[in-house]
Structure formats: structure tokens, C-alpha cells
Design a protein around this nucleic acid. Structure first.
Lengths: 167, 167
DNA sequence: TTGGAATGTCAACAAAGCTGACGTATTATT
DNA sequence: AATAATACGTCAGCTTTGTTGACATTCCAA
């Protein structure tokens, strides 16, 4: 049989509105679960998701600049600045003037910052791990493939750039 | 080989922190893409994501009550009320006093409301369809499995309840 | 040396969440 | 019949996190 029983990735699938709607709802409800555990931790600390995201990506790319973080998070510098200021004041993030370009500020987590990052990502990874194990390795591959296909090109570049850090 | 090369769903997987972090980042960036298209449409209309969610779930469960919508969206009645009031004033949502229980208000989209819902979900489904086709049918199954495993139990119940509406 | 880039900061505002309090029907319970 | 509970709406005030716009500073590079 030509085309065969194992459809290739770019086969023209028949996708009903219902199937697609279910996917949309799955994203909605799953994202709630995805953020639920960190949110609980953050609530006690008077921090929000914005702080979590900043801490996450600074941990991921130590020494990243404000501008780079801005682009990854997709917010204005004013919005990010408020969050960063709080984190610096609370001693979770360290600010270092660039050596090559002294206009730039390189961002690092302090030990306390790394501690918070651990707490938050432990919680989030626990849920992710449980979900991955429940679904199985093939499902995980598919999960990642669909998510990557769902990103804007610009964001996929940034996502890939992060991936290459520790491969 | 016992266990075989095709690992079962509940096999104990070796999942590195890096793999899990990539999953977390994939969720973050993909969710941005997921909401990007409707967000652009909504911006022109002075509506936000909250309005989109209300419209989506009223479309999905016509005649649903305020209380039910509250539970699905996971917000307070004050927050939802603000959104609903705007939608009713703008003639997108219709409010009907319950026949069996007159305390309840059943919610329906008007024709204009259905029109907006179409516009929004067309945009969102286009992206979902493109992603599904790019990733292939097996990936789609895995995608859904992981997302469902990631939900809180409470939310999975609501998600399943929606699924059963039109199968 | 001058232009532009990167950063920080001030002010004002908006969306969308929250809590708490209160009112009004309506229904359920005792 | 009286009381309690439920469903909904609304007012007031607060928080987080985003937005613009304006402006100063620092510093690289042409």
C-alpha cells in the first residue's frame, strides 16, 4: 500500500473542529496545572509568575543581559525592571556591569536565588516527571513535537538557543 | 528481551533535569504561540483573554450557569462578572433566568457572540491544525496524553466532562 | 565628537485577578 | 412558617503584571 499504514509527519490529516477544540482545551487546563505548584510557593513569598520566569531564565543562562531576557520573556523593560529590582533588593539576583560593554548588565542568581529556583523548579519538574511517566516515552516525544510546532518562529529560535546550552 | 524495546506507559523512565526543563520551556513558549493569534484579534476589540475564555466555554456548553463557568475558569465571581457584564452589554452573550431554578442564570452566545467565537477559534484552530499536521498523528496522541496527565484532578474532570458533550 | 544603543527610572494607566461586605431572589431545610 | 443556604450581582479597594511616553545616563562606534 502506497502511503502505508504508518502516516508520515506531513500527511494531510483529517482534523475535525472537535479534535482541535479538545487540543485547545487540553492546553488551557494543562497550563493551569503546569503553573499551579510554583504559584503556591510564590504566593507565600509575595512573588508572582513574572519573578519565577525571570529566575528561571537567569538560572538557565547565567550572565544573560537585560535586553536578552526582555526578548525571551516578551515584556517591556519597565515591566521586567520592576521584577528585577525586587529580586535584586531581596538578594536573589546579582547585577554585574559588562566588561566588554559597560552599558550591559549581566544577571546572575545569588545562592539564595539558586535556592528559590531549586524550590520552584523542583515542584514544576515533579509534576512534569509524573506526567511524562504516566504518558510514556513515545507520548513525550509527540508532546514536544507538537509544542515546538506551535511556537512562533521567533520563539522557537530562542527555545532552540536555550536547548543548545546543555544539550 | 524482557520489557522489550517498546516501553510501556508506566515504565520507570530515566528523566534528567535537563529533559524536564526543556519540557517546561516548551510549555512556556508554546503557550505564547497558542494565545498569540486570538490576542491580536481581541486587542482590536478592547477585549482580553478573559473574554475569550468566557466566550469559548459558553459556546462549548450553551446554557451553562454562572457558577459552572466560575468553576471551569477558576476565577472569582467578581472577576467573571466584570467580563460577563461587558459581553452582555455589547450584545455577545445572553442571560436567561433558569426555569427549574430561578436563581440560576443560563448563558448563551448571541449570533454576534457566535461570530466572535468563530473568529477567535478559527485563528486558534488554524495554528493547532498546522502544528498537528507538522507533528503527525502519533505525536498528537502523545501530546494529548501528556497534557491530560499534567492537569489537576479537578480540572481533568471538567475537561472530561466537556469532551463528552460532542464526543 | 556626535549619534545611537543599552539601561534605568518616573509617571500614569489598564486588564484581570483578588478579598470583603452587602443585597436580593429563590430554594431547601427544619 | 421561619430560617438557612444558594445563586447571583454589585460596590469598594487592593495587587500583579502588563502597557506608553518621556527623559537621563552611560558608553560604544563611526
Amino acid at each position: 500500500m502506497e502511503g502505508s499504514s504508518r502516516e508520515s509527519g506531513n500527511a494531510l490529516l483529517f482534523l475535525t473542529d472537535e479534535q482541535l477544540r479538545k487540543g485547545i482545551e487540553a492546553m488551557f487546563f494543562a497550563y493551569r496545572g503546569f503553573t499551579a505548584d510554583p504559584d503556591r510557593i510564590l504566593a507565600d513569598l509575595a512573588y508572582g509568575r513574572a519573578h519565577h520566569r525571570a529566575v528561571h531564565f537567569i538560572h538557565r543562562s547565567p550572565g544573560t543581559t537585560v535586553n536578552n531576557l526582555l526578548a525571551i520573556l516578551g515584556v517591556t523593560k519597565q515591566s521586567l525592571n520592576r521584577v528585577l529590582r525586587a529580586l535584586v533588593e531581596d538578594g536573589l539576583v546579582r547585577n554585574e556591569v559588562g566588561k566588554r560593554d559597560k552599558r550591559e548588565r549581566h544577571l546572575y542568581l545569588t545562592e539564595a536565588g539558586e535556592g528559590l529556583e531549586r524550590r520552584l523548579s523542583d515542584a514544576q519538574r515533579d509534576r512534569m516527571r509524573t506526567a511524562y511517566r504516566a504518558a510514556g516515552p513515545e507520548a513525550v516525544t509527540g508532546f514536544r513535537q507538537v509544542l515546538e510546532a506551535m511556537m512562533d518562529d521567533e520563539m522557537r529560535k530562542r527555545y532552540d538557543a536555550l536547548k543548545e546550552l546543555k544539550g
